[in-house]
Simulated scan of single mutants.
Amino acid sequence: MSINIATLPRITRDTLSGLLLSTSTPNNLAIIDVRDHDHIGGHIVSSTWVPSATLDYRMPELVRTLQDKEKVVFHCALSQQRGPSAALQYSRERERILGSGESHKQEVFVLEGGFVQWQEKYGKDVQLTEAYVEGIWQEY
């Protein structure tokens, strides 16, 4: 199956917040934040910051460290460029390294609306967002 930017599954902020708040999911879920200098002002709880500029050399390591996760969610500020590109690159690298067998099933998503939409609803929720600085987001 050939995957491309258009066919990448999206996950809504409400679905993701539900997964984060459910006690059974966090160990099965990885959130990868690929924002670069725009990472300031907050991030989703438990997310891992992997600046998009570092993806080329960090991708094999990501595939290895995330291989046992059931769901991996990528996002950037708006999830229009960097987030989807990273998710696609990850999916392809994962298939190259691990193959596409049943034992390696994993769902890869892009967070719809990225961190900009996330923070609009969940920025002040300390269960869901860390290091939030509201003033930074006033301009968005």
Rank of each mutant, 00 (worst) to 15 (best):
M1E: 06
S2Q: 11
I3C: 05
I3K: 12
I3L: 12
A6H: 11
T7G: 06
T7S: 15
L8D: 05
L8K: 09
R10D: 07
R10Y: 08
R10H: 10
I11F: 07
R13Y: 02
R13N: 05
L16V: 07
L16Q: 06
G18V: 02
L19T: 00
L19A: 14
S22K: 11
S24H: 11
S24P: 01
P26E: 02
N27R: 09
N27Q: 12
N27K: 08
N27W: 00
N27S: 13
A30V: 00
I31H: 08
I31Q: 07
I32W: 05
R35E: 01
R35K: 05
R35T: 04
R35C: 07
D36A: 13
H37A: 12
H37T: 12
H37D: 14
D38F: 11
G42R: 09
H43R: 10
I44K: 02
S47M: 04
T48S: 15
W49E: 02
W49R: 01
W49H: 15
V50M: 07
V50C: 10
P51C: 09
S52P: 00
S52A: 13
A53N: 13
T54E: 12
T54A: 11
L55Q: 07
L55R: 04
D56P: 09
Y57L: 06
R58N: 11
P60I: 08
L62C: 02
L62V: 05
T65Y: 01
L66A: 04
Q67N: 13
K69G: 03
K71F: 10
K71E: 10
V73H: 09
F74E: 13
H75R: 06
A77V: 08
L78F: 11
S79A: 15
S79Y: 09
S79H: 10
Q80I: 10
Q81I: 06
R82D: 08
G83A: 13
G83R: 06
P84W: 04
S85Y: 07
A86R: 06
A86I: 04
A86M: 07
L88Q: 09
Q89Y: 10
Y90E: 06
R92D: 09
E93L: 08
R94N: 02
E95D: 13
I97C: 00
G99D: 01
G99V: 00
E102K: 11
E102G: 00
H104P: 02
K105C: 10
K105P: 00
K105G: 09
K105A: 11
E107C: 06
V108S: 06
V108M: 08
V110L: 07
V110N: 08
L111A: 08
E112P: 04
E112Q: 15
G114W: 08
V116M: 14
Q117N: 15
Q119H: 09
E120S: 07
E120A: 13
E120N: 09
E120G: 03
E120Y: 03
K121R: 13
K121Y: 03
Y122Q: 01
Y122N: 00
G123L: 06
G123T: 02
D125E: 14
D125A: 04
D125K: 01
Q127D: 14
T129G: 00
E130M: 03
E130C: 08
E130A: 13
Y132G: 02
V133T: 14
V133Q: 15
V133D: 14
G135F: 01
